[in-house]
């Protein structure tokens, strides 16, 4: 698997898109710091961007890479290599290079700004970790979708739809149901609703860490009340790990049944 990861990673490092992504985050980091002039405010703005944009980029990159490396995959399938190694190797190649672009792209401006001397270093670290999780999750989801759809256009469509659903529509539906079901106790419902969406989960995780009640919203408050800040952090982090492992595991299992 490591060899395949290596080749996928090299392949991506030679592609223009990894650099576009890296430069985008680099620019974003510098601009935010320049505009906010305040690390902790920049972290919040950054969070709002990360929880929406990182899943989108993970999804699109994942699906494009899968379809574009079809030739590579077919070549590998005839070699004495385990099937799951082929797919996991490629997956970690993409997810790894995306995470690296994210970490470096945002890390460099913040480090240049003197992050390590400020109190926001842990908040920022958590933000990057969450971003890496979201990359892993959405790249894995998009690989699953691509595996199930030989038709690229369909696969691409489903993947973008999934992103829309989780990153955009879900919140609206959630709020709507809170309003409609006003009379009922909704704590458990909203807890479950948050755990079932990695985007909301990431947002809650970061807000819990920042401990800004004003921004936390209903779910964050419920989380805090239910688990306490510390436990809440652990639970949401655990849920993110689960969200990461499940699609990766499914990828490893499902790829064995595919015809090429």
């Amino acid at each position: 698997m490591l060899k395949i990861l290596k080749y996928s990673f090299y392949d991506l490092m030679r592609s223009r898109w990894s650099y576009v992504y890296f430069l985008f985050y680099l620019a974003l980091g510098f601009v935010l710091l320049f505009l906010n002039n305040d690390l902790s405010k920049a972290v919040i703005t950054l969070m709002n961007i990360i929880v929406v944009l990182v899943p989108l980029i993970g999804t699109i990159f994942g699906i494009m890479y899968y379809y574009n490396s079809r030739e590579f995959t077919e070549l590998l399938l005839a070699l004495p290599v385990r099937r799951s190694s082929i797919f996991l190797g490629q997956y970690f190649g993409v997810a790894g290079s995306l995470s690296l672009s994210l970490l470096l792209g945002l890390g460099i401006p913040f480090a240049a700004y003197g992050l390590f001397r400020s109190g926001a270093v842990w908040d920022f670290g958590l933000l990057l970790v969450t971003g890496a999780f979201l990359t892993l999750i959405f790249t894995a989801l998009s690989f699953n979708i691509a595996l199930a759809n030989e038709n690229r256009i369909k696969g691409f469509g489903y993947a973008v739809l999934l992103w829309l659903l989780l990153a955009v529509i879900y919140d609206g539906l959630f709020l709507l149901s809170l309003i409609l079901l006003e009379e009922y106790p909704l704590d458990n419902f909203s807890l479950a609703a948050t755990l079932l969406n990695p985007v909301d989960l990431s947002r809650t995780l970061i807000l819990l860490k920042l401990d800004i009640s004003a921004l936390m919203g209903y779910t964050g408050a419920v989380f805090k009340e239910f688990f306490g800040t510390h436990m809440g952090l652990l639970v949401s982090l655990g849920a993110l790990v689960l969200w990461t492992c499940l699609p990766i595991w499914r990828l490893a299992v499902r790829c064995r049944k595919q015809d090429f």
Binding site: E74, L77, A78, R83, R256, K257, Q258, D259, F260
Partner: peptide, 9 residues
Amino acid sequence: IKSILGMVV
């Protein structure tokens, strides 16, 4: 052929 190679299941 692909079945023998394990590419087709």
